Deep mutational scan, measured.
Amino acid sequence: MDETGKELVLALYDYQEKSPREVTMKKGDILTLLNSTNKDWWKVEVKITVNGKTYERQGAVPAAYVKKL
Rank of each mutant, 00 (worst) to 15 (best):
M1C: 15
M1F: 13
M1H: 14
M1R: 12
M1L: 13
D2E: 13
E3C: 15
E3L: 13
E3V: 13
E3A: 13
T4G: 13
T4Q: 13
T4I: 12
T4M: 13
G5S: 11
G5K: 14
G5R: 14
G5P: 14
K6I: 12
K6Y: 13
K6R: 14
K6A: 10
K6L: 12
K6V: 12
K6Q: 10
K6M: 11
E7F: 10
E7V: 14
E7H: 10
E7A: 11
L8A: 06
L8V: 08
L8E: 06
L8Y: 15
L8H: 09
L8M: 10
V9E: 00
V9D: 01
V9W: 05
V9K: 00
V9F: 04
V9I: 07
L10Q: 09
L10T: 06
L10M: 14
L10D: 02
L10H: 03
A11Q: 00
A11L: 03
A11H: 02
A11K: 01
A11S: 04
L12Y: 03
L12T: 01
L12R: 03
Y13P: 01
Y13I: 09
Y13R: 15
Y13N: 07
Y13A: 10
Y13V: 11
D14W: 04
Y15L: 01
Y15Q: 02
Y15N: 01
Y15C: 07
Q16Y: 14
Q16L: 11
Q16F: 14
Q16E: 14
Q16A: 12
Q16G: 06
E17A: 15
E17C: 13
E17G: 15
E17L: 07
E17V: 05
K18F: 04
K18L: 08
K18D: 06
S19T: 11
S19K: 04
S19M: 05
S19W: 06
P20F: 09
P20K: 09
P20Q: 09
P20H: 10
P20A: 09
P20M: 08
P20V: 08
R21Y: 14
R21I: 11
R21L: 14
R21S: 14
E22R: 04
E22Q: 09
E22V: 04
E22G: 12
V23C: 08
V23I: 13
T24N: 04
T24G: 08
T24Y: 03
T24L: 04
M25G: 01
M25W: 01
M25S: 01
M25Q: 02
M25K: 00
M25F: 12
K26L: 07
K26M: 07
K26I: 07
K26T: 08
K26W: 07
K26R: 11
K26S: 08
K26F: 09
K27C: 07
K27G: 04
K27N: 02
K27L: 05
K27I: 05
G28W: 04
G28M: 02
G28N: 05
G28S: 03
G28V: 03
G28I: 02
G28D: 04
D29L: 05
D29S: 05
D29F: 04
D29I: 04
D29R: 03
I30F: 04
I30Y: 04
I30M: 05
I30K: 05
L31D: 00
L31Y: 09
L31F: 06
L31W: 03
T32N: 06
L33M: 02
L33K: 00
L34S: 01
L34E: 01
L34N: 01
N35M: 07
N35A: 08
N35F: 05
N35C: 14
N35G: 07
S36V: 06
S36D: 15
S36I: 07
S36N: 07
S36A: 12
S36C: 14
T37N: 12
T37K: 10
T37F: 08
T37A: 12
T37Y: 10
T37L: 09
T37M: 10
N38K: 06
N38I: 04
N38A: 08
N38P: 04
N38R: 08
N38Q: 09
N38M: 07
K39D: 11
K39I: 08
K39M: 10
K39F: 09
K39L: 10
K39R: 11
K39E: 10
D40K: 12
D40M: 11
D40S: 10
D40C: 14
D40Y: 15
D40W: 15
W41I: 03
W41G: 01
W41V: 03
W41D: 00
W41L: 03
W42E: 00
W42T: 01
K43F: 15
K43V: 15
K43W: 15
V44D: 00
V44A: 01
E45N: 07
E45V: 12
E45L: 13
V46Y: 09
V46Q: 12
V46K: 13
V46N: 03
V46A: 09
K47Q: 11
K47C: 12
K47D: 03
K47L: 13
I48Y: 13
I48T: 09
T49I: 11
T49E: 11
T49S: 10
T49V: 13
T49K: 11
T49P: 01
T49W: 08
T49D: 07
V50S: 08
V50M: 10
V50R: 09
V50T: 09
N51Q: 09
N51W: 05
N51K: 07
N51I: 03
G52H: 06
G52M: 04
G52L: 04
G52K: 05
G52S: 05
G52D: 07
K53V: 14
K53A: 11
K53L: 13
K53H: 12
T54C: 12
T54A: 07
T54I: 12
T54Q: 09
T54K: 07
T54H: 08
T54R: 06
T54P: 07
Y55T: 12
Y55Q: 08
Y55W: 10
Y55D: 05
Y55S: 08
Y55M: 10
Y55F: 12
E56H: 15
E56F: 15
E56L: 15
R57I: 09
R57L: 08
R57E: 02
Q58C: 12
Q58G: 03
Q58K: 08
Q58T: 10
G59K: 01
G59W: 06
G59N: 00
A60K: 13
A60I: 15
A60T: 14
A60F: 15
A60P: 02
V61I: 08
V61S: 01
V61Q: 00
V61D: 02
P62R: 04
P62G: 03
P62Q: 03
P62D: 03
P62H: 04
A63E: 02
A63R: 07
A63S: 11
A63W: 03
A63F: 02
A64I: 10
A64M: 10
A64D: 09
A64H: 12
A64G: 09
A64V: 08
Y65R: 04
Y65W: 05
Y65C: 15
Y65G: 05
Y65K: 05
V66L: 15
V66C: 14
V66H: 02
V66P: 05
V66Q: 01
V66S: 00
V66G: 01
K67R: 13
K67I: 14
K67S: 09
K67E: 12
K67Y: 09
K67T: 13
K67W: 09
K67G: 06
K67V: 15
K67M: 14
K68H: 08
K68I: 12
K68Y: 08
K68R: 12
K68W: 06
K68F: 07
K68M: 09
L69I: 14
L69R: 02
L69G: 02
L69C: 14
L69Q: 03
